[in-house]
Write a protein that binds this DNA or RNA. Structure first.
Length: 511
RNA sequence: GUCCUCAUAGCUCAAUGGAUAGAGCGCUGGCCUCCGGAGCCAGUGGUGCAGGUUCGAGUCCUGCUGAGGACACCA
């Protein structure tokens, strides 16, 4: 809708003034009694604005075009609104004509322990972002990068061995229930490498169970060791060594990071071992082979890596702007006012699976998605569990169930939906408009990589609907009006269901 | 110390640089002979501080204050 208005105005300006003037379209505030507004008039003289107004009035789209100081306000014709409404609720998908392929990598937690709620935040962000991008016609790959080699894997194996002998884990090692389980399972005679492999396999399969609980989907799991098996790391190192920002010092190979990081970073240690950093660079090179644009979703504690990984991507001849890193802030678990400790040393760790089992995936996903990524998130277990008006998840799902129930009723009374909007009132017009915004919201989420806009939109739509529903009977003696109202709420239900689907939250017909 | 993110109602949070800053919770008072009261309506109450850019700033820039995080030849 907004895009369409933009086109009309841009064309009119080009015709009348022979110029291109940048401008925006936004929703008009209620007091204007209009639907949309443009700030174009702030860039025109009053005379020009009047010419524009008169010209737009002659088009068949508006009931009214009004010039109000720095804005031009529009009230669109009902017919026109209906056309966009039908468009918004149609099942047609945009053509898959986007040439660029997007690889979105998220969670990528080390296979040294189970997931906690923070991982799930990154997980649902990535999962939903991927779904939204797909919905908009992008070709998307969802990938989990598995760090299955290096120091922490050695520590993992050592921890398992220590546990199996009833000893304490090594310093910086791992000690948890799952380590104990693995220790119980290992047969004597296995060497450290075999134990590591066994442990990784076991933990990864447990992580996949967590992902299933949260309904987070991946297209592939990419293992770090594959980068070594395929010599990708050697290849990348060879390219990097030719660059003047790569140098040797103290027996190690370094990347000079002037301007993008606080100090230079080691690529190959003096003992000849590549660092995780070199692995990461190689992994990005590998990803760029399979996709044109990369999205990484990292915890905010990784923000320091952004600069250096972008610099290395550039050194490999790729455009660093094609790599988008989304950082999400940490999650704090609460039970009412009490903060639940998540620290590994604290002992009582609440795992992701515990949270998911306690509150259910619908509530968990909803709360994790409801805040923008770069804000810290308080996750209240008590509130998420509450099956009452306090809990916004149910508020939205209730709209869906209510509408389903109205359609049941309509069916029993033999009242059919009519694809018309002629008898609808101002309040109903507002609902039509809100439904028409859906596409714009999806695009906003994609553009800003921020699914929380969709959550807010749903809350807004739900509020509008409940308000309307309490004041109006959908099904009445007037069959014509009932038919049109059914059409209206049919659209609302469609958008709610589609949105909840994108968020990975169920849309029950009965609650 | 250096760097990153955040700061909006009593609480948890919204607001592509736009007009009179929105929800929920809490609190006060109303609404079910009715298509689902897991709902609705009314009232209550807010942009941390100081400058700057702009026709217009919660939003952008600088400084300050406060909270969290990052600063390994770990990943």
């Amino acid at each position: 809708m907004i895009d369409f208005l933009k086109k009309i105005i841009a064309r009119t300006i080009a015709d009348k003034f022979g110029a291109e003037i940048p401008f925006d379209i936004m929703k008009a505030p209620a007091f204007t009694n209009c639907d949309y507004a443009s700030n174009i008039a702030s860039k025109l003289s009053e005379g020009e604005a009047e010419i524009l107004r008169a010209e737009l009035s002659r088009t068949p789209y508006f009931d009214e075009v009004r010039f109000q100081k720095p804005f031009v306000n529009f009230r669109v014709k009902m017919d026109f609104l209906k056309k966009f409404f039908l468009d918004a609720i149609s099942d047609k998908k945009p053509e898959n004509d986007k040439k660029e392929k997007i690889l979105i990598e998220f969670i990528s937690a080390n296979p040294t322990g189970l997931l906690h709620i923070g991982h799930i935040r990154g997980g649902v962000l990535g999962d939903v972002l991927a779904k939204i991008l797909k919905e908009l016609g992008w070709n998307v790959i969802r990938e989990y990068y598995v760090n299955d080699r290096g120091r922490q894997i050695k520590l993992l194996a050592e921890s398992v061995i220590a546990r199996s002998r009833g000893k304490k884990p090594p310093e910086d090692g791992y000690d948890s229930e799952i380590i104990g389980k693995i220790a119980d399972e290992i047969k004597p005679g296995l060497d450290e490498k075999e134990i590591a492999k066994l442990a990784i396999g076991k933990i990864l399969s447990e992580i996949k169970k967590d992902l299933e609980l949260a309904k987070i989907n991946f297209d592939s799991f990419f293992s770090e060791s594959r980068l070594y098996e395929t010599k990708k790391v050697d290849e990348v190192l060879k390219i990097l060594r030719k660059k003047k920002s790569v140098f040797e010092k103290d027996g190690a190979i370094w990347l000079e990071t002037e301007g993008c990081d606080e100090k230079d970073r080691v690529l190959v240690k003096k003992d000849g071992e590549p660092t995780y950093f070199l692995s990461d660079i190689s992994y990005h090179a590998e990803k760029f082979k399979r996709a044109d644009r990369l999205i990484n979703i990292w915890g905010a504690d990784h923000h320091g890596y952004v600069g250096r990984i972008k610099k290395s991507v550039a050194l490999l001849g790729k455009n660093p702007d094609k790599l988008k890193v989304i950082l999400y802030q940490l999650v704090r678990l609460k039970r009412g006012k009490e903060i639940v400790k998540m620290s590994k040393r604290g002992g009582s760790i609440l795992l992701a699976r515990d949270v998911l089992k306690e509150v259910g995936k619908d509530a968990a996903r909803f709360f994790l998605l409801s805040r923008k990524a770069d804000a810290q998130l308080d996750f209240d277990l008590e509130l998420a569990k509450e099956k009452s008006q306090k809990n916004p998840v149910y508020y939205i799902q209730y709209v869906h169930a209510r509408i389903c129930s109205v359609f049941e009723k309509a069916k029993s009374k033999n009242i059919a939906m009519a694809e018309r909007t002629e008898l609808l009132s101002e309040a109903e017009r507002e609902i039509l408009k809100t439904v028409c915004e859906f596409d714009g919201i999806l695009n906003l989420c994609a553009r800003e990589f921020a699914p929380h806009h969709l959550v807010n939109y749903l809350l807004d739509l739900s509020k509008t609907f409940h308000n309307y529903y309490e004041r109006n009977r959908i099904i009445s003696e007037d069959k014509e009006l009932s038919g049109e109202r059914l059409f209206l709420i049919y659209g609302v239900r469609k958008i709610i269901k589609k949105s909840l689907g994108l968020l990975g939250i169920s849309a029950p017909e009965k609650m």
